[in-house]
């Protein structure tokens, strides 16, 4: 089924407003779903980045746009971080751009393996380091 970005935004807004306690929306890869109406149905934007330049650039643009729109909380989450050099590169970029690096999720072969096997990460590798990092993130976000 095909529909316009405007229609998806409308649906998203209505559904999220009716959702009970917590809603988590997996958004379009680009910025199409961020619009002037976004803050009315979004308390928090998580901008997921990988430790390479173009991903960081996109992530920083998401942060800037979400801020301009007036979203109350905007955080960067660095994913697939392999080592200290990766972490420092992300950290440096975020400082230079004035964005908040909120959480770091390590590169984790278990994530790729779960993906490959079509299993949810929590089912395929409940003890994986990435899961530990996400559990920490989850409790900080709602804590």
């Amino acid at each position: 089924m095909c529909r316009s970005h405007a229609a998806v935004r409308g649906l998203l807004r209505e559904i999220v407003e009716a959702a009970g306690d917590v809603s988590v929306a997996d958004m379009e890869a680009g910025l199409e779903h961020l619009s002037r109406g976004t803050p009315r149905h979004t308390d928090l934007v998580l901008s997921v980045v990988e430790p390479y330049y173009r991903s960081l650039e996109t992530g920083a643009r998401v942060v800037e746009l979400a801020r301009e729109l007036g979203v109350a909380r905007v955080h960067v989450v660095a994913n697939k971080v392999r080592d200290e050099a990766d972490r420092e590169a992300v950290d440096r970029f975020c400082r230079a751009r004035g964005v908040d690096l909120y959480a770091v999720v390590p590169h984790d072969a278990a994530v790729l393996e779960s993906d490959r096997d079509g299993a949810a990460l929590l089912d395929g590798a409940p003890g994986a380091p990435a899961v530990k990092a996400l559990a920490d993130l989850a409790s900080r976000l709602l804590g």
Partner: peptide, 30 residues
Amino acid sequence: MKIAVAGKGGSGKTTLAATLARLFARQGRD
């Protein structure tokens, strides 16, 4: 709390969103 997860394709945003959603549910959230 209404959360939007954004990122480039391949960034792992879907895995991250799904895992967070289930972890919130395990904390007793709807």
